[in-house]
Computed example of a mutant assay.
Amino acid sequence: MDITDLFPLSGELGYLGIFLISFVGSIIVFVPVPYFPVILAAAVSGKFDPHMIAIVSALGTVIAKTIIFFASYYGRRMLSQNMQNRMLPLQRLVSRYGWPGAFVAAATPIPDDIVYIPLGLARYSPWKFALSTFAGKVVMNEVMVWGTVFLGRPLAQDVVSSSDNLTLLIITLASIVALGLIIYFSLKIDWGKLIGRWFPWAIEEDVKEGEKKTGDSNSSLEKKKD
């Protein structure tokens, strides 16, 4: 396949086409519909501003990933109250340090949904998630687009040629397995014990709440005795 075949409607759709292809390629969880060759084809065509390619593609991708994030964010309600309580220390931890994970997942070619879905389950800040993911996607897109601009058509053609069906299938299966394991252990692990060793501040509120309940119980007992 020639790389120019990937962007036949560039003259008609323009930046809207880049946006839509990036959105569709990112909204389907774990079904690889790579949009990278399309933005490389747009860069090779010489009809688009490289910075705008990177930004418009990142915008389409982030909107799609934010929808996935919110699906897991609100899907947390399906968990039992006990599971939600056990995840509170993890929720506090990612609330403070979740943005580096979102940024790295966006700025590298790893299957990013294995990071975004757990962040949603842990109820990470949607605004921090969107901004970190957007920044990461812009960085990655800029590198790819400008690499294509400077190194030319052969680089883009190599990327397209290497995106065969077997590779995409392996990535899909590996991503599904990884996410399944991450979600399973996220729900089963006692995060209070694990996180408390290294980040005691993440469980301090639970300790205080427990002491308060104990104090209230003791007060009630004393009143009954009186």
Rank of each mutant, 00 (worst) to 15 (best):
P200A: 06
S125Y: 11
N218Q: 15
A105G: 10
D190N: 15
L40K: 01
K208V: 11
L131N: 02
T4D: 15
R96C: 08
G136Y: 07
V149D: 05
T172P: 00
I170Y: 13
V29A: 10
V38D: 07
S220I: 04
V33P: 01
E12M: 12
G25V: 08
L119S: 02
L79Q: 05
L90R: 06
G101Q: 05
P34A: 04
V94P: 04
V207C: 01
W198P: 00
S72N: 11
G46F: 06
T108Q: 11
P34D: 03
S175K: 08
S186C: 07
Q84Y: 05
E222R: 12
G136C: 08
A41D: 06
V159K: 00
G120S: 03
I171T: 12
L9Y: 15
S217D: 13
Q91R: 12
L6S: 12
P111E: 10
F36L: 15
P32N: 06
Y73T: 02
Y15K: 07
I39W: 11
E211K: 10
V138L: 09
R86I: 07
D226G: 10
A107N: 01
I28T: 08
Y15R: 06
V29N: 02
I114P: 04
Y97E: 06
V177K: 07
V38E: 05
M140L: 13
Q84R: 14
S26R: 09
L13A: 13
I21H: 07
I67A: 12
F103S: 05
I67L: 15
I39D: 03
I203D: 07
P118A: 13
R197L: 04
A105Y: 07
K193M: 06
I110S: 03
V94H: 06
L121Q: 04
I67P: 02
I183G: 00
T66V: 14
V177T: 08
L179C: 12
T214C: 03
E142L: 15
L155H: 00
A43F: 02
T61W: 12
W201L: 09
P32F: 10
G98E: 09
L221D: 12
V160S: 08
K212Y: 14
D206C: 04
V31Q: 10
P50F: 14
L187P: 01
Q81I: 10
G147D: 01
L187E: 09
R86Q: 14
V44D: 01
H51S: 07
W198H: 09
L187D: 04
W191A: 05
